[in-house]
Design a binder for these strands. Structure first.
Length: 562
RNA sequence: CGGGGCGUGGCGCAGCCUGGUAGCGCGCGGCAUUUGGGGUGCCGAGGACGCCGGUUCAAAUCCGGCCGCCCCGACCA
């Protein structure tokens, strides 16, 4: 029974004053979600229907690869988190129960699922396993934003695979790729599977599923045949005009000129003819000078992965003491290891670099001749770079899913082992795989909205058809609408029946805001003409069907939608 | 964590500078009218202005503290 006169669907003419993102504005305006606090949202009935439609699609596809659905608690003892070293993660909510025991609110479920498997799995015969659940995740995000796009509490489908060896893990990973590709195809999102950072946990490989849209918080680098998170992307830099190398390099006075911009202007060379020095400190290596081309930027994630350890930018005093005055440091005669970005290591010619003394730069510095270096790829890719000869573009995107080869990190920490055929104890190889249904919904809104409101992909729409009655209670038109409502429901379509005592303008506007794929209108015209007017939400195209057997006609039209 | 902004009926806002007891639009309730694009008229309900404290005869308005929310950045297993 879904009569709008009895249904909680509080639509608003105005978006919340503080909303920026399209999905934030429209999901609130359409009556799908309401805010409770920073990063805390309720799904109202229609919004929850969308969420659950995404959930069901995910469930079907994970079941299809052999996943077994279960449910694990959000409130958990802290101890396993201590064992895996995750207890001190900033985003983790920690609390105490009444007896003072340390508890956490789970941000994912690796600890608990691994404990279960550790307890239950004994033999290689018990493997492989794919276990999953839909459960609330709690994360004390430093900055929740944009409605349901980044929240502190959200439901995630997280699955975990358990295998006897890396080959098994690879197979489980491949299965998830299959399932995920199907999930996002079925949700009719525009999406990319991109290479992503494995993070400090040092996983064996990871991909993210990214839905491009302006409100996205991530950036993806795309070229024909290539897709990667900008955090890890590699590409060939657009070349710059080579400058001559000089022997020895020529010292030029650059009083007070410390930025790339200032120096390149003063010397009349492009920014790409400069070497930019980025001194960092690591625990293992002490100070390291990272050099990138003047028009490039260091990518911290790539640098960290290259170093194999975390780092921090060197403080100014450390730089001054070890190399020279900030703004004028360079690689020549510097007493620190030098990492030179590949884009410079490859090119011929000389560069302008700091002279490591106040108010001077050196011109004509040639890597390899004037300083020794290790070539690395640590720069952030830029639009216009190329991959395999294809130009690269960079787009914002929402991360709607990720897949991650964990390896044995958790099984080791939590003693998840099995006995192989030889009776030898072996560590279980694990993978973890997440999808956020709420983000799927928000991404769909972002990608499919127009100036009238949401235009849901058919599989996610809260209802298949919105039936609008332009008729008074008791009128012939109303009777016809009531009849059609019943007939439509018999076809199996999910129907929202706008039987409110309101004007046509309001009803049409609300229907377009909510964005069901089809809108059928019954009014005076309908009975006069004997034809049912149906509007396809995508493009607002008007169709018209014989009133005789109209329900079947609507159902068929619905099925035929692209 | 750094920077910026905001907090006044359900929503969107004005009033604050220059203190004098709260207003507009939409929405909401009733009646009438209207029924193919948020129509019209009349009547009506609803807020002691985020919280606490201070100044003052008098505070939404001035001062202090706190809380909450948003945006940008940092951060984001």
């Amino acid at each position: 029974m879904t009569r709008l006169s009895e249904y909680l669907l509080p639509t608003e003419r105005e978006p919340p004053a503080d909303a920026e993102a399209v999905s934030h504005k429209l999901m609130v305006r359409a009556g799908l979600i309401r805010q409770v606090g920073a990063g805390l949202w309720s799904f109202l009935p229609a919004g929850w229907r969308v969420h659950q439609r995404a959930v069901q699609i995910i469930r079907e596809e994970i079941d299809a690869i052999g996943g077994q659905e279960m449910l694990m608690p959000v409130l958990q003892p802290a101890e396993p988190w201590r064992r895996t070293g995750r207890l001190d993660i900033e985003e983790l909510f920690r609390l105490h129960d009444r007896r003072g025991a340390e508890m956490v609110l789970a941000m994912t479920h690796e600890e608990v699922v691994t404990l279960h498997v550790a307890q239950v799995v004994r033999s290689y015969r018990d493997l492989p396993l794919i276990l999953y659940h839909f459960q609330v995740k709690e994360r004390d995000e430093p900055r929740p934003r944009a409605g349901v796009l980044r929240t502190r509490e959200f439901i995630m489908k997280d699955s975990y695979s358990f295998d006897r060896d890396p080959e098994g893990l690879a197979a489980a990973y491949e299965k998830h790729i299959t399932a995920y590709d199907r999930v996002f195809d079925r949700c009719e999102l525009e999406w990319y599977r991109v290479e992503s950072d494995v993070g400090m946990m040092g996983g064996l490989g990871a991909h993210e599923y990214m839905a491009p849209c302006p409100a996205g918080e991530n950036e993806i680098a795309l070229a024909s045949g290539y897709a990667a998170n900008v955090e890890v992307a590699s590409a060939l830099a657009a070349p710059v005009e080579p400058q001559p190398a000089l022997d020895p390099p020529e010292a030029v006075e650059t009083p007070g000129l410390t930025t790339v911009d200032q120096v390149s202007h003063a010397l009349g060379v492009p920014a790409g003819a400069l070497l930019k020095a980025y001194p960092v400190i690591t625990a293992g290596r002490g100070m390291v000078m990272v050099l990138v081309r003047g028009d490039h930027r260091v990518n911290d994630v790539k640098l960290r992965n290259t170093l194999g350890e975390s780092f921090r930018p060197a403080h100014q005093e450390e730089v001054t003491q070890r190399i020279g005055p900030a703004g004028f440091i360079g690689p020549v005669d510097a007493d620190v290891p030098i990492l030179l970005d590949q884009a410079c290591a490859d090119s011929e010619g000389g560069y302008v670099a700091g002279a490591s003394r106040p108010d001077f730069h050196l011109r004509g510095v040639r890597p390899g001749r004037h300083f020794a270096f290790e070539a690395v790829d640590v720069r952030r890719v830029e639009a216009g770079d190329t991959v395999g000869g294809q130009p690269l573009r960079i787009e914002p995107a929402i991360e709607v899913g990720n897949i991650f080869k964990l390896g044995t990190r958790y099984s080791q920490a939590l003693d998840a082992t099995y006995l192989d055929e030889a009776g030898t104890e072996q560590l279980i190889w694990m993978g973890s795989y997440g999808i956020g249904p709420a983000r799927i919904a928000a991404a769909a809104v972002e990608q499919c909205a127009d100036e009238h409101g949401i235009a849901w992909p058919r599989p996610l729409a809260p209802f298949d058809v919105q039936l609008v009655a332009i008729a008074r209670p008791g009128s012939r038109e109303r009777e016809a609408a009531d009849r059609l409502y019943a007939e439509l429901r018999e076809t199996g379509l999910e129907v929202l029946y706008d039987d409110r005592d309101a004007g046509p303008g309001e009803k049409f506007a609300d229907a377009e805001l909510l964005g069901c794929p089809l809108r059928a209108t019954v009014g005076r015209r309908t009975l006069e003409s004997g034809r049912l007017e149906v509007q396809v939400r995508r493009g607002l195209a008007a169709r018209d069907l014989p009133l005789q057997n109209a329900a079947a006609g609507v159902a068929e039209l619905w099925r035929s939608l692209p």
